[in-house]
Design a protein around this nucleic acid. Structure first.
Lengths: 114, 114
DNA sequence: TTGTTGGTTAGGCATGGGCCTAAGCGTAAG
DNA sequence: CTTACGCTTAGGCCCATGCCTAACCAACAA
């Protein structure tokens, strides 16, 4: 059964492999079956399917069975979650930097007022 | 010598570990020395320093020596690069979805014009 | 000088991840 | 019914990663 919880950790793990990032990139162009996705890679199919499993487990992709094929599509929500995590910390740091620079400006002004 | 190239791969690898994400989170609150950062973790110092090495190698943090301490700070640029990568693919997929839905709407309208 | 503090280097162990081949299994086609 | 296709399951190999301890080094303190 597919893991219904998709902690952000799984997203970063999934995206830390070049094959899996390439799959995400490919799927951003549109849905595709397993063998269509696998074609560009010089890799045995079971290895490739394992990568898809990691991506699906992270919630980055979803798949539906269609005849004897399996069609995969991107799930933007998981990407968004990871983006948000990074943006939150980045912005907090950037705003601290801004306040620090403002403080420096302020100190400079105070001094020129002496 | 520190790796001067920071491909996006290193960023995702770095963020795929809970200890390292916690460090990023801590550093978003402000700069800190190695031992300050290490304190919350139940881990030998060499293990922790290794994590800092991964983060620095990914360009996520920078550090300067100060006396016998080493002060680390966050580098928002690396976070931004990874955010951008994800946002690009997410948005491309979302816009495809939008066009697809518009197409469905269109087909529906055509049919009602029969 | 002698210690102490803050951190790094060296080296080793155990688990996990990525890759493979071989075999199985359900669906579709002949 | 038999064959072919599109995967998935099982199991094994190998290297990378995360963790440890022990030893080292450089800066400051007594």
């Amino acid at each position: 059964m597919p893991n219904q919880q998709h902690p952000i950790e799984q997203t970063f793990i999934a995206l830390s492999d070049p094959t899996r990032r390439a799959v995400v990139q490919a799927l951003s162009e549109g849905s595709a079956t397993v063998s269509q996705l696998a074609k560009p890679f010089d890799m045995a199919l079971p290895s490739f399917t394992q990568h898809l499993g990691v991506l699906e487990n992270a919630g980055l992709i979803v798949s539906r069975r269609e005849g004897r094929s399996r069609v995969c599509s991107l799930n933007p929500a998981a990407l968004k979650d990871a983006e948000d995590w990074m943006a939150a910390h980045r912005k907090q740091w950037e705003s601290r930097l801004d306040r620090f620079e403002a403080h420096l400006q302020n100190a400079k002004k105070e001094k020129s007022n002496d």
